[in-house]
Design a binder for these strands. Structure first.
Length: 269
DNA sequence: ACCCTATGACTAG
DNA sequence: TAGTCCTAGGGTT
């Protein structure tokens, strides 16, 4: 579920339902019980996001959430349903209940704690603002362009670019026609610029509804076009063994680090 | 009942 | 590099 687009989408949704309002917090599963008690009955003063990190603000206190590989939120309108016993955090007010399940991180921090987290993150393609983040972007790009690690590894490094995960990595590299195993220092700077612009576009688009849309409509099969608005399609992600939408060659995959890289040898030489 | 997988990331050695 | 943590769904014994 969760790459940067998901987190931004969840931030927006929570801001819409809970922002500026008093809410009740609880932890049916128990592991966030004392912290939930601390924020319960208070106003959610702000919601912020950076990369894959989500922050709920309650004046000086901050709930920091990272969904990890399979954490997610379920929002339900109306009367609060009985929580599953795995619900780490439940937020509710009169008209909405939000249940958090399976996060890798759910903790109570101060503003200082939040800043420490943000400091170790790279540039965020969604919140990037050239007038304030240009120097950071420049520094991180220099790091990429002088590294001997592969561009596939570098794109997933959250201290360089914050928010890209395994799906966007695969799709952005494909869309740039870039081989994943090229060392950063051998990368064409204009290709990196193109991938960055593409990442900004795609993640913002995905953040609108929390869905990854990396395939151009004209590259979908007829059968897929009919359900485009429901489905998640990819050029290469999890399509190993299938035929490339563009060149018809066979999509490959390989384990790199602890994740799987997918690519088309024909289009990404 | 067990085994595997998954859009993540940390720690120990 | 391996092990660990968080959870559910699907497939196989």
């Amino acid at each position: 579920m969760p790459e940067g687009h998901t987190i931004r989408h969840l931030a927006d949704v929570h801001a819409a339902h809970f922002g500026g309002k008093v809410l009740q917090a609880s932890s049916p599963q128990g592991r966030f019980a004392t912290e939930a008690w601390t924020i319960s009955g208070r106003e959610m003063t702000d919601v912020t996001a950076r990369g894959k990190h989500l922050f709920f603000h309650f004046d000086g206190d901050v709930v920091h959430i990272h969904l990890g590989l399979y954490g997610w939120f379920t929002l339900v309108p109306g009367v609060a349903p009985k929580p599953k016993d795995t619900v780490r955090l439940r937020l509710q007010n009169d008209d909405t209940t939000s249940d958090l399940i399976g996060p890798t991180k759910c903790e109570l921090l101060t503003e200082t704690g939040r800043h420490k987290i943000i400091e170790r993150l790279g540039v965020d393609p969604i919140s990037y603002d050239p007038t304030t983040d240009e120097e950071l972007r420049e520094r991180k790009f220099h790091k990429i362009l002088s590294s001997k690690k592969s561009i596939a590894e570098l794109l997933m490094d959250q201290s360089i670019i914050a928010g890209i995960g395994n799906v966007y990595r695969a799709e952005i590299l494909f869309r740039a026609g870039q081989n994943p195993f090229t060392p950063g220092r051998e990368l064409m700077p204009e290709i990196l610029d193109a991938m960055w612009d593409d990442a900004r576009r795609l993640l913002k688009l995905g953040a609108e509804d929390g869905m990854i849309r990396a395939v151009e409509p004209e590259h979908l099969l007829n059968e897929e076009q009919r359900r485009y608005k429901y489905g998640q399609f990819s050029y290469v992600y999890k399509r190993n063994g299938q035929l490339c939408r563009i060149c018809g060659g066979v999509i490959e995959s390989i384990s790199l680090g602890n994740r799987t890289v997918y690519w088309c040898p024909g289009c990404q030489e």
